[in-house]
Amino acid sequence: MTALTQGPLLGFDTETTGVNPFRDRIVTAALVGRGPHGTEQRTWLINPGVEIPEQAAAIHGISTAHARANGMDPKQALAEISAELTAAFSRDVPVVAFNATFDLTIIEAELERHRLPTIGERLGRPLSPVIDPLVLDRALDRYRRGKRKLVDLCQVYGVEDAGNLHTADVDVAATLDVLAAQAHRHPELLTQDLDQLHQWQAGQHRAWAQNFNSWRASTGFEGPGASLHWPLGREDDDAPAVPMASHDRSVA
């Protein structure tokens, strides 16, 4: 499989008003396409139509006033973003996202909120193929100690000059660089076709989430744990327990 090393790949990231993908809104989004012919990038600043909490604005740098003055209408932006993602999935181009469950779930929820066709509805099938460097790292280096935020994986995999993480376009570039480094370090990834890799990640995520939730229960933590579902969460499932910043949306 050459997709992990040569592309084409479509990286995706969002910055949002909060950490609940079913209730919160997208503030910025970025798509970065990489392939044999180079790199293309698109970014969106969106007026989410609600107040951006100070905690979220402190991380991604977008205030309510700035989004209202400069942001796109959400319906237009969501239509453009979803069209790009749908086109990639339709051509079996892998969509690469760090903690993909959050970003793919929130855009599907936003599309429903604005009464636009979801990506799944457009495809007529589940969203795939998806590649999630966080899921890969948990599976391939299960016993490594320490955090697994995007900034941590950049250090682990030798990705330098990640730039100003917490902005969607920089996060996407760093995520794609981490994936390339993972493929180099773990060449066994290259032996799976995209469908196999997608299904393998779903199983690995479920196993990790079950173990994580068992640990939470054994230590007395209350509240929702990690969703068992990947790459889309389910509203009737336990919501992912995630920190605020998009590239920090990992629970362990």
Rank of each mutant, 00 (worst) to 15 (best):
Q6F: 05
P8F: 06
F12L: 11
D13M: 11
E15G: 10
T16Y: 01
T17F: 04
N20Q: 12
A29V: 01
A30F: 04
H37Q: 14
G49L: 03
V50N: 03
A58G: 14
H66M: 13
A69F: 03
N70D: 14
Q76A: 11
L85V: 05
L85W: 09
T86S: 13
T86L: 06
A88M: 11
A88C: 07
F89P: 04
V93D: 00
N99S: 15
A100Q: 12
F102N: 08
D103Q: 09
E112S: 14
R113A: 13
R115G: 10
R115C: 12
P117Q: 13
T118S: 12
I119A: 00
E121R: 14
E121N: 06
R122A: 13
G124K: 13
P126H: 10
I131D: 03
D141G: 06
R142I: 00
R142C: 05
Y143D: 14
G146F: 01
K149P: 03
V151M: 08
V156F: 05
G158M: 00
A162Y: 06
N164C: 04
L165G: 11
L165M: 13
T167K: 14
V172F: 01
V172S: 04
L176H: 08
V178C: 04
A181T: 06
Q182M: 13
H186V: 00
P187I: 03
L194V: 12
L197H: 10
Q204L: 00
H205D: 01
H205I: 01
A207K: 09
A209V: 04
F212G: 00
N213Y: 06
S214C: 08
W215R: 12
S218P: 02
T219F: 08
G220F: 12
G220H: 10
P224Y: 09
S227F: 01
W230L: 07
W230P: 00
P231K: 06
L232A: 02
L232E: 02
D237N: 05
P240M: 12
A241P: 01
P243Y: 06
S246G: 15
S246Q: 11
D248S: 05
S250C: 12
